[in-house]
Design a protein around this nucleic acid. Structure first.
Lengths: 155, 155
DNA sequence: TGTGATTATATCGTGTACGATGTAAAATTC
DNA sequence: GAATTTTACATCGTACACGATATAATCACA
């Protein structure tokens, strides 16, 4: 049984390795994304748009769990780089439709090598492939759980 | 076998749930930390200091994997809140020693309930306790691996 | 049909993160 | 022991995150 003091040790926390690994993985992407002149959150937006183009800000918001206060400035920066277009919907003037430009579409080909390059760096003697698979499964379960909790609170 | 297109789908990425869950867990802490008038990274600094007081900025940097460009302003804000003292070391004028104030020490008692409150929220029908343990183990392995890689590059 | 509630996005302020660079003290080298 | 290198922090600029709030368009319904 852990004492209440011990429960406050950094090495006993789950949250800390989650926070630290997340930042380190983002750093892994940086050299690859720099070549494409994009940041990691911008890459995530592109992943969403490459799957489905011409979607609203709130569609992106739902998929990435980022609010408009984060997305609006981020999307404006992507517009300035001419990766996307932002346009008010005709049917519903509240909505803003995000569409890939030619440049944004063409970036997909250049990005196709990124995922395997990253996975490569996860391989090591200590961390087996099946552990990484388990990690991803558990994280996705947690994500869905937190997602449900959030929507329950709104209702 | 995944196509190169499919490898760019958000749901096939490992990095994304890592990034999203990390942010969500930080949000879980917010209501608890707000009562203590601290942020999540400030809480991490306190965790380090509660274990070992009177350490240098680079000691904290090593444990949290945060550089001085992040820590210096963060520690200054904590100094303004009178949680810590920042003082140049007499032996080595380059070093800055961080020490808890009385207020910073006393905050520990109030924080002791936080870890269990958070763990409580991880429990769910979908995510079993042993999965959370596995998650933590794998994340720590990855953290150590990336840590080694970083130090190799410096050498 | 008007009017209050809801929705979709934007703005503002604060606090991280982090690459690049600066600076002064200490260590190393010649 | 002076010059060079390294170390320990600090500063600067840019880009997220996010709580709180604003605003305009749409919806709901009395």
């Amino acid at each position: 049984m852990k004492t209440s003091q011990e429960s406050l040790w950094l090495e006993n926390q789950l949250c800390f390795p989650l926070y630290a690994v997340s930042r380190m993985v983002t750093k892994l992407y940086t050299p690859f994304l720099e070549k494409l002149d994009i940041t990691y959150p911008q890459y995530l937006v592109l992943l969403v748009l490459w799957k489905e183009d011409q979607i609203t800000v709130s569609d992106i918001s739902e998929q990435l769990y980022l609010e408009s206060n984060t997305l609006t400035p981020l999307l404006k920066r992507m517009e300035k780089k001419e990766l996307i277009c932002r346009e008010r919907s005709k049917e519903d003037e509240r909505k803003v439709v995000i569409a890939l430009t030619r440049k944004g579409q063409e970036l997909q080909k250049e990005a196709e090598c990124v995922p395997t390059s990253i996975i490569e760096q996860f391989k090591s003697d200590d961390v087996k492939a099946n552990e990484v698979v388990e990690l991803k499964l558990t994280l996705n379960k947690l994500l869905n759980m937190f997602d449900r909790k959030l929507s329950e609170k709104t209702v």
